[in-house]
Amino acid sequence: MSIEIKGVGKKFGDFVALDDVNLTIPTGQLTALLGPSGGGKSTLLRIIAGLENADTGSVTIEGVEATHLPAQKRNVGFVFQHYAAFKHMSVAKNVAFGLEIRKRPKAEVKEKVEELLGLVHLSQFADRLPSQLSGGQRQRMALARALAIEPTVLLLDEPFGALDAKVRKELRDWLRRLHDEVHVTTVFVTHDQEEALEVADEIVVINDGRIEQVGSPSELYDSPANDFVMSFLGPTTMIDGVLHRPHDIDIVTHPGVPGSLPARIVRELRVGFEVRLTVELLDAAHEEIQVTVTRAHQRSQGLREGIDVWLTPTHANGKVSESPLGV
């Protein structure tokens, strides 16, 4: 087991950032620490890296007790949200830094730097300064720099948070492929559930300084441990006090299914290939429910504002309910 965290707690003044956290992060996997801002995920990552000291508890990295080891002795690669590029050094010098500190022979450093710059597609920028690179390039440089020391674990703190949407998406796919090549145990912090679901082998959901759930993306999405995890991983809507995914509600224009709920479409919003319908239940409470259908389904059923419909939830908080329609 690669990283073992036992009973870790951390306070900043009165604010409890982490409260008795226990977690085991397996070797060779890509793990996401997912949660809202201020939930403690970055603090946990910084404690693993040794950039922050835990008030209580212990951290073990690959069997080495690391709780009181200073950052430079942990052999951990750390990538910051804002790159932390060494501004006065060229790209190649940035990547070589960890190796030069370790007093590796010049030829070996040169070879390793070239190899890594190739890996992150920055070979032709070796002699530039970080200020001459784009954000995405700077972050790739920071990754190469962290990988140069052949770290036991690679830690990334919101690595794509400062980048625009398109570059973010590219880098995300690239990180996944890179990890499949390099296989270093990787932990990254994100508040973006899509990023976590797409990239990670395992997701740790952290909120209010506590771990809410640990599991694979499918486990978390299909069987969330509680309402928080369910609502954090994707859109939800509530019927009779139970959370449902908007795309897990059947919507038809004719009655007949036992237990289906009569309602009326009050708004429709088209976003790309999907249509988000706001539906009002025709009961005393007039609850508003979100239902998402595909554009094709909307067309074939003739769903539009103002018409009456019948709703049947197919999932309830992860548990598949009886689906009378058999879909």
């Binding site: 950052a71 750390f78 501004k87």
Partner: peptide, 16 residues
């Protein structure tokens, strides 16, 4: 202005 991230990055790369 430069902040302490560069320093922390150096520390994590093994610099004393």
């Amino acid at each position: 202005e430069i902040g302490d991230e560069q320093e922390w990055a150096a520390r994590s790369l093994g610099a004393s």
